[in-house]
Design a protein around this nucleic acid. Structure first.
Lengths: 262, 262
DNA sequence: GGGTATTTGTCCGTATGTATT
DNA sequence: AAATACATACGGACAAATACC
């Protein structure tokens, strides 16, 4: 009793891809040809295609055909750094070099909103009920391609204490942490990241130009920053497509290079 | 001209799920009922189901029906710690508390193999061609449920220098790093992790009991450990199901609790 | 620009198998 | 054993995207 036919077809094609008989970027036979070759119906062949698509092995282009996917060179993002620096300005991360070429990140001007603190925002920032927060949302690009969606949340009390730049819809050039340091004497002594993976929502699918069949997941990185009283004062949520990003964590003494190595 | 019908059906059901009209764990109408309700064919209804399944919103149980998935309480794994400790014994990580109850990890005795160093193993350990490595593979459980698959690679030269426990198929109780410290005077001064996400292979699908439609991805964490000459001496590759795991990174001074908070 | 052939996308109906209750 | 519900597979039709002449 073998597996279902669509699985046998998919396994056979997967073997051909992994053995190199179907090289990267090459075109698969059309669904009609595969239908004849495997003596199955076109719908069954298409079920096999869906299995391969889900695993990121092939992609279909309407009007053209089905192709073996090209390997993507991932962006590497360093999660660890100097906890006191403002280097991670609007964002929770700074970019490490990728494959020898240093790519330059750009980002849109922030969209600023005043919101009620609910859910993770409230719990991570340890705010009482009915608190308000400033939300600063940005779209970030590397070399012009969409790279991450990022939203930082600050307790409204920081603005009331004088950090008015937080509610201005312009980038804070010196970095938000550095600004809060000079403006309020607030010192970041550490932060904590949480990395999870989930399916993208429709906004993310559109911004990252992900296939809308949901096969590409997104990383969600939550960074909570703490001041010298070890109280949280900022929550940043960053979202990255999982198919072209990876994260590096360094502890102790390690060599410099953070190359791809794949 | 709206979206395809299967997307409209899927969107409508997704709205019902996210609004709470279809609560967690509840059963959806059967495909036949949905066929009548949306005036579509059963195959089209099933296309909508596949879309929802891919996004982890519902699950089907043959003979029973389709159900809204229950939220999973994730395991939290701390990636940062004392670089010099042997606390992370066979594995690259140690377990943080999850939801107040401290769960106990167990693992199988390691399966030990001698292999050629190729690919990432060779490049990360910076070994010349035709080097051999010791591979120690373990299955790890938390409270009896499969949690991670883990393989550590050590240059064969460590065994030749006297670290014979590495080629014994038993756990190294004091921790591999501590053992290498006392046996060879080898000191770990740091390590670097790389976190990626990919589709599971068939081994992983079987061990973690993942649905074989490939909708659940896996985390792959590569940890390279460095000695006091900042040379790599161990590579550990750990794989975790992405739907029930998350990773925490602490930098600087942060509070203790690493709770789920979701 | 227009027209045509090719290829994948969507949708239908039907039949049969398999798992669960 | 029977009923229910999802899984697999078939065949057909038309639409939409793309490439080429």
């Amino acid at each position: 009793m073998p597996d279902p036919m669509y699985r046998r077809i998919a396994d056979d094609l997967r073997d051909k891809i992994e053995s190199g008989a179907l090289p990267n970027g090459s075109q698969l036979p059309t669904e009609i040809e595969l239908r004849e070759r495997y003596d199955a119906s076109r719908n069954t062949v298409r079920d096999a295609m869906k299995w391969l698509i889900t695993r990121g092995l092939v992609e279909t282009r309407p009007g053209q055909g089905t192709f073996v996917v090209d390997k993507i060179v991932p962006f590497v993002t360093q999660l660890t750094g100097d906890p006191g620096t403002g280097r991670d300005d609007e964002g929770p991360v700074y970019v490490a070099e990728v494959e020898a070429t240093r790519r330059e990140p750009t980002s849109t001007e922030p969209r600023v909103e005043i919101q009620q603190a609910i859910g993770v925002v409230q719990s991570q920032l340890k705010l009482p009920d009915s608190s308000t927060v400033v939300s600063r949302h940005q779209q970030r690009y590397i070399d012009g391609t969409p790279w991450s969606l990022q939203t930082s949340f600050y307790p409204m009390s920081l603005v009331e204490r004088g950090a008015i730049k937080l509610i201005q819809a312009t980038n804070i050039d010196e970095g938000a942490v550095a600004y809060l340091g000079t403006r309020l004497g607030l010192r970041q002594v550490g932060y904590r990241d949480k990395v999870t993976v989930r399916a993208p929502d429709s906004n993310e699918t559109a911004f990252f130009k992900l296939p809308d069949d949901g096969r590409v997941a997104v990383f969600e990185v939550q960074r909570v920053a703490f001041d010298d009283l070890v109280q949280p004062f900022r929550l940043t949520i960053s979202v990255y497509p999982a198919d072209r990003n990876q994260f590096a964590v360094s502890v102790g003494q390690v060599p410099d290079d953070v190359r791809g190595h794949r």
